[in-house]
Write a protein that binds this DNA or RNA. Structure first.
Lengths: 164, 164
DNA sequence: CTCGAATAGTTTAAAGTACAAACTATTAAT
DNA sequence: ATTAATAGTTTGTACTTTAAACTATTCGAG
């Protein structure tokens, strides 16, 4: 057999983030199975927390989901009757995205499930450490925000195998 | 106009991780533009750091890339002459994946670029905080590792738009 | 006022990505 | 010796992201 991991300390930051993201969403989708809202819970949470009506553009900017994809997400959540588009009388190009009564009904359960998962995920960190961790996430987020960046393109297929 | 973000403090953990991952890889792919190894740098780093020869299975397990995708990754990096498969005489089902001399040549540059980016990303955290942050990532990773999880399925398309 | 630029949102097409399932070859286990 | 398990591969399907072109509307400089 090969050696067993525990190389986590040396795991490159980018890959570490990718793995955590994947594991977190995997666990969450299990938790939220019956709600079938998968990773789009963050859209609902954003709308709920926002003091002002949200446009798709705003959600797009905040959650860093590009606006073409945003259309699909909004369509999906609309189809599940969790949000609705209402016209913004002041700007007929834009919609206001609002939670439906049905969404308001399930939000408490949603929060509960998320809190449960976070409790498991952050087990071993005390309150202070958890806050510090969150602050670090915010800080890194800001640091990276203004950096020039490209779309990540892999394109395995262009180079075919040649060594076996 | 809509309100401007800065809701980061309230950003749900999962989405926060997803955003960071995306931003980090975006920035990194810019840094590593000319190397064209995109996000697969972590495979090279893993092989370099590993004391024992790596099999695809081991890389797969460690980096949480499923083994079908692993084949593409290995093919790609092979095609770029950065790694090669060598036969494991003790088990003819398995390969040992090794860095080529070409890869050893570029590794210093790769580390340099990654360190540069990490320095930018972690700006504002002192050494202790950076270490604490990394520990937290490892801890969360372990906490989530043994959790039941599902594949994240979104499937926008099944529910078509009905409210506009 | 008005014409050109910018913006909100949509659609399409192309490419990237993940994963289950079936497959080969080989090794382990009873 | 047969059966189960493992390393790796292939294929097909479905999910996801993005660029680019598009409509409708609003903004803004002259």
């Amino acid at each position: 057999m090969t050696n067993k991991p525990s190389i986590k300390q040396q795991m490159p930051l980018g890959r570490h983030l990718a793995i955590l993201t994947k594991m977190y969403y995997g666990a969450l989708s299990k938790q939220l199975e019956h709600l079938e809202i998968e990773k789009h819970y963050s859209v609902l949470v954003l709308i709920e927390n926002s003091e002002h009506p949200c446009t798709q553009q705003f959600i797009s900017d905040t959650l860093k989901i590009d606006k073409a994809s945003m259309v699909s997400v909004i369509d999906y959540l609309s189809g599940k009757k969790l949000i609705k588009r209402t016209n913004n009388p002041a700007d007929r190009r834009a919609y206001w995205i609002e939670l439906t009564p049905k969404a308001h009904l399930i939000m408490p359960e949603l929060h509960e499930k998320i809190n449960e998962l976070n409790k498991v995920a952050l087990k071993g960190l005390n309150k202070t450490q958890a806050i510090e961790f969150n602050k670090a996430l915010c800080l890194i987020s800001e640091n990276l925000d203004n950096l020039p960046s490209d779309r990540v393109i892999i394109n395995f297929k262009k180079v075919k195998k040649n060594i076996k």
